[in-house]
C-alpha cells in the first residue's frame, strides 16, 4: 500500500523538482539576460493552455502525427520483410550485415540534403528520413524473433500439413509479433526524436516547424510550451506502444 503510493509520489516529486529548477534557472538567468523571463514555467503553461484552445496547434499536431504514422508504416513495411529474410537466410544475413551496420550508424539527418534533392521539398523527404531512421530496430528485432521461433512450432505446422500461407499466418507472424512490437516501440521513439529536426527543413507545418515559427515570432513562452508539448506527446506515444506490446503478451 505504502509502496504503491510511493510509486505514484516519486515521479510526481521528480517532475515538481524539475519545474522548480526550471523556474529557478530562468529567474537566475533573467538577472543577466532579461529575456529569460519569457522562458519561465508559468508563462509556458499559460501559453500552452492558450495554444491548446487554438485550432492551428491541433493542425500542427495532426500533421506531425500523420508523419509519424506514415514513416512508421514505411519502416514496418520494409523492416519486417527484410528482418524475416535476415532471420531465415544466413546467406542474406551475412551479405547484408556490414552494410546494415554501416547505414544504421549514419545519422538519418545526414541524408536530408540528398533526400530533398531527390524527393523535392515537402512531406516526401521527411517520410524518407523517418522511415530510414526507424527501419533498423524493426529489422533487427524481427530477425531476432525469427531466429528464436520454436522449431517445434514449425514441425507441428508440418505435421498438420499446413499450407505455406497457414504456416506464415498462423505460426511465423504471430510467433514474431512480440519482437516486431518491441522494434516498433523503439522505432516510435526514434521517429519522434528525428521528427522535430526533420520538420525544421523545408516544410510549413508540424511541431518542428511550429517551434521555429515561435522563435521567429519572438513568442518564447509558446516555444517553451511547444517543447513541453513535444515531450508530452512523445511520452503518450511510447505509452501507447508499450500498452500494445503488453496487450499482445497477455499473461506472459
Amino acid at each position: 500500500m505504502a509502496s504503491r503510493r510511493l510509486r505514484l509520489l516519486l515521479p510526481l516529486g521528480g517532475l515538481a523538482a524539475a519545474v522548480a529548477l526550471w523556474s529557478l534557472g530562468t529567474a537566475l538567468l533573467a538577472r543577466s539576460v532579461p529575456i529569460a523571463t519569457h522562458f519561465a514555467p508559468l508563462g509556458a503553461l499559460r501559453a500552452l493552455v492558450g495554444l491548446l484552445g487554438e485550432a492551428l496547434l491541433w493542425e500542427h499536431i495532426a500533421v506531425s502525427l500523420k508523419r509519424v504514422a506514415v514513416g512508421l508504416a514505411f519502416a514496418v513495411g520494409m523492416g519486417v520483410p527484410l528482418g524475416v529474410l535476415t532471420g531465415l537466410s544466413t546467406l542474406f544475413a551475412q551479405a547484408s550485415g556490414p552494410l546494415f551496420q554501416f547505414l544504421r550508424m549514419v545519422s538519418p539527418l545526414s541524408w536530408m540534403p540528398i533526400a530533398v534533392m531527390v524527393l523535392g521539398i515537402g512531406d516526401a523527404p521527411v517520410y524518407f528520413l523517418l522511415a530510414f531512421a526507424a527501419v533498423w530496430p524493426i529489422l533487427l528485432n524481427t530477425a531476432a524473433g525469427v531466429a528464436q521461433l520454436d522449431r517445434n512450432w514449425l514441425l507441428l505446422a508440418r505435421s498438420l500439413s499446413a499450407t505455406r500461407f497457414e504456416t506464415v499466418a498462423r505460426v511465423i507472424l504471430p510467433g514474431i509479433t512480440a519482437h516486431i512490437l518491441t522494434g516498433v516501440r523503439l522505432a516510435i521513439g526514434i521517429i519522434w526524436i528525428i521528427l522535430v529536426p526533420a520538420e525544421m527543413l523545408g516544410v510549413d507545418a508540424g511541431l518542428g516547424y511550429f517551434i521555429l515559427d515561435t522563435r521567429d515570432r519572438l513568442a518564447y513562452a509558446e516555444l517553451m510550451a511547444a517543447v513541453v508539448l513535444v515531450g508530452c506527446l512523445g511520452f503518450l506515444l511510447d505509452f501507447a506502444a508499450r500498452w500494445l506490446h503488453r496487450l499482445w503478451l497477455h499473461g506472459r
Binding site: 508440418r158 505435421s159 498438420l160 509479433t177
Partner: peptide, 18 residues
C-alpha cells in the same frame, strides 16, 4: 506426408503462447 489421423507430441509442450 503426415497422415491426418496421426498426431505428434514433443519433449517440450511447444504451446503457442499467443
Amino acid at each position: 506426408s503426415p497422415h491426418p489421423r496421426s498426431a505428434l507430441i514433443f519433449q517440450q509442450a511447444s504451446l503457442l503462447p499467443w
